[in-house]
């Protein structure tokens, strides 16, 4: 009996899981294989492309010795962390205001903020560059720290607003009766109850910061100020020659920190989404 249900479980769960994993992770397997091959083995049809025949670290060595990968990593990390923190701060304020407070224009604001989210960056980056130029922020971390939130705040506010709405009003009302101020309620009651929602918004923001390409390309201009996606593409694609091994090495290494964060927080991410989006 036990054996039977184990078998059934394996068939119904683990087999499809393996299929999904193969489908979703094959490109990363491929990138990994390429990153450990010497250049001469990457483009040849004589060898089985799915295995590493001659194992080498030279692509990683090139990445660390001939590019400023460490700086890129640091820039990306710093910008993503600060920009995410800034966005989450703003989004908590906006989300709470929209969820709980009535003020002039509050209805309109909710829609307005979501609509600005629809403006594609491909249109915005040139006018935005003018603002960055006017503020003298080119080639500084601030250029990205201050512009990324424009892509993050609308969605994060919306997510957090949904989450705050799930917290029973009664808790706050009784605290108000007890003489707490709104700010105190927000900090002492609402925020601790909203940790999963905040975490899921944080992860979301962090991911988008980590991935951003266009603004980072335009606003940064020296090799040591670039982010991982931009540095990788501009330093490892030389004219019509692509340094595939190192490109793939950089893509993989550049993904590690985000994947690492996800493996810790994915649980909260799910429960945060559960509460804010499923409501009703």
């Amino acid at each position: 009996m036990m054996v039977g249900s184990d078998k059934q479980k394996a068939l119904q769960i683990y087999v499809p899981l393996v299929v999904y994993t193969l489908l979703l992770l094959f490109p990363f397997y491929w990138m990994g294989v390429v990153s450990f091959k010497p250049t001469s083995d990457i483009f040849t049809l004589d060898l089985n492309p799915f295995w590493v025949q001659r194992f080498t670290f030279e692509n990683y060595q090139y990445l660390f010795e001939n590019t400023e990968f460490i700086s890129w990593m640091w820039n990306t990390m710093l910008i993503a962390v600060v920009s995410t923190a800034l966005s989450i701060f703003c989004s908590i304020c906006i989300g709470y205001a929209l969820a709980r407070l009535k003020f002039p224009g509050s209805d309109f604001m909710g829609i307005g903020i979501f609509l600005v989210y629809l403006v594609p960056p491909t249109l915005l980056f040139i006018p935005m560059a003018e603002v960055i130029g006017a503020l003298n922020l080119f080639n500084t971390h601030w250029a990205l720290i201050l512009t990324y939130p424009t892509q993050l705040i609308p969605f994060a506010s919306w997510l957090l607003m949904g989450y705050f709405l799930t917290i029973p009003k009664e808790i706050e009302e009784s605290a108000l009766m007890d003489g707490c101020s709104r700010i105190q309620i927000l900090i002492r009651i609402v925020l601790p109850l909203s940790v999963p929602g905040i975490l899921s918004a944080t992860i979301f923001c962090f991911t988008l910061c980590w991935n951003e390409f266009l603004y980072a390309l335009i606003f940064m201009s020296s090799g040591d100020m670039k982010t991982i996606p931009v540095g990788t593409v501009s330093d490892l694609i030389k004219a019509d020659t692509l340094f595939w091994g190192s490109l793939m090495a950089s893509a993989l290494l550049g993904s590690v920190p985000v994947a690492f964060i996800y493996s810790f927080f994915v649980k909260y991410y799910v429960s945060g989404l559960t509460a804010s989006a499923v409501k009703g």
Binding site: F89, C90, I153, R182
Partner: peptide
């Protein structure tokens, strides 16, 4: 208090959006 607090809480985000998004948007 709600109305004033509401506006106050909206401000940091709105300022950021106004400076870096509204101008580029209308210019666009």
């Amino acid at each position: 208090r709600e109305s004033s607090l509401g506006v106050l809480l909206m401000l940091p985000g709105l300022i950021l959006l106004a400076v870096f998004l509204a101008y580029p948007f209308f210019l666009g």
